[in-house]
């Protein structure tokens, strides 16, 4: 269970000479074990906020605490180590490596540990069976359906057992049925394993599965509602 505390978060991009205020003095608290849906129109700063919480982007000002550890001041190297142990990322486009089998994709984060090869494979298999794909371990992404690819993505995100899962439109590229299955899986991970989940989505149907919905607009928190 990972808690997130954000204070005074500001993120600005420069597009040519134009200054874009993507996040503007934003505060947010996410309790450990929460399942939060992050909604808002395009360009409202949802993905940027997710990237900042996941330590793959840096704010211009403000602070981000995950499990009481301030991450916005860590070096690139420290952030990389922190991500490998504490965060699982799930992407809209799955972002699997096409040249590797499902099992090898899931094993990737474990390459950064000192685990023996046999243990890595065993853990990857376990993660795949948790998402119901143990019979597809040797298949490459191109041989899987979109829903199956996203399951592999989820298995990769949970294989190191992180407390925080960050999902960027996880059902955005799936049909309703496959999307529902993915949402079921996320709910199960949240409820049975206590994962804190922050999910960016455009889809109100998907947001309904979260315990709480946070609306962003023009870089500000507009509405915060419990389900």
């Amino acid at each position: 269970m990972s808690s997130v505390k954000i204070r005074g978060l500001t993120k600005t991009y420069m597009r040519g000479s134009e200054r874009l205020d993507v996040l503007n003095n934003l505060d947010l608290d996410v309790k450990g074990g929460d399942f939060v849906a992050l909604m808002g129109p395009s360009g409202s700063g949802k993905t940027t906020l997710l990237n900042l919480i996941g330590g793959i982007d840096r704010p211009n000002s403000g602070s981000i605490f995950v499990d009481n550890q301030r991450i916005d001041q860590l070096s690139d190297r420290q952030l990389a180590h922190w991500r490998s142990r504490n965060v699982g990322f799930i992407f809209q486009m799955f972002n699997l490596l096409p040249v590797l089998s499902a099992e090898r994709n899931v094993e990737l984060p474990l390459l950064l540990t000192n685990m023996a090869a046999a243990e890595r494979r065993s853990r990857a298999r376990t993660a795949l069976s948790l998402v119901g794909l143990d019979d597809r371990a040797s298949h490459k992404p191109a041989e899987l359906s979109g829903g199956q690819e996203q399951r592999v993505g989820i298995a990769r995100a949970i294989v190191t057992d992180p407390g925080l899962l960050l999902c960027d439109e996880p059902t955005g590229d799936l049909d309703r049925k496959a999307g529902d299955e993915i949402l079921e899986l996320l709910v199960a991970l949240n409820q049975s394993q206590g994962k804190t989940i922050i999910m960016v989505t455009h889809d109100p149907h998907a947001a309904e599965r979260a315990q709480r919905t946070v609306h962003l607009d023009k870089g500000r928190l507009e509405m915060d509602a419990a389900a």
Binding site: D76, A80, H81, S84, F89, L108, P109, L112, R156
Partner: peptide, 16 residues
């Protein structure tokens, strides 16, 4: 480019 970014996201350092 995208895959290398994913590796970094997973925790691979710049040097690695």
């Amino acid at each position: 480019t995208n895959e290398l970014a994913v590796l970094k996201t997973l925790g691979f350092t710049n040097n690695r």
